[in-house]
Design a protein around this nucleic acid. Sequence first.
DNA 1: AACTCGGGGCA
DNA 2: TGCCCAGAGTT
Length: 220
Amino acid sequence: MLTKKDINFALEKIEEMFPDAECELVHDNPFELLIAVVLSAQCTDALVNKVTKDLFKKYKTPEDYLAVSLEELQHDIRSIGLYRNKSKNIRKLCEMLIEEYDGVVPNTKEELEKLAGVGRKTANVVASVAFGVPAIAVDTHVERVAKRLGICRWKDSVLEVEKTLMRKVPKEEWSNTHHRLIFFGRYHCKAKSPQCDTCPLLEICREGQKRMKQMEKAVE
DNA sequence: AACTCGGGGCA
DNA sequence: TGCCCAGAGTT
């Protein structure tokens, strides 16, 4: 298992690789960010941004999403996929915001996660990006990277990955950490083709060293 | 713990 | 043209 020192080394190296890693979703306010992150499940930020560019001109408030038919909302977000579930969740989400929070997006992870369509990952992203709450959002990229590097065990659940990261990373670095790991996972430590041969983290990476040894054996 | 939703991106 | 995916809800 990696030490805190190793992880700090890894995060510094990743920051050198991706100095401007940050949330790529377009958002002018917490409500728009919340909608954008809910829509982003299982599709790229670029695709979400393509949809929200027009969506946010048409829908400004929770009331706006409830003012149109479900079919109309589905049509407006259809190009991102999973649109039936997401449109229903957004309507429910907006109802809850109006009922329980007077139309204002709550600013804690706990309150956010209770909203429809909002899981732990979405709650953490919104809390940290919109409200500056210390949080580490663990998506498939972060999970894969943490497990490959050896920050946690392969069998760990997403929740365990998050807890381990929070334990081993200083709190003031939490909000930066998930963006760094997401970028690293997306562009370098890819699911199918990790680029270990050019990776600055190789010296501390459990999976990377294993792969390089296999490469050497294959040559012999 | 496994299954479902889904159009778009990419090999 | 077929495979996979920046999650969350349901069973």
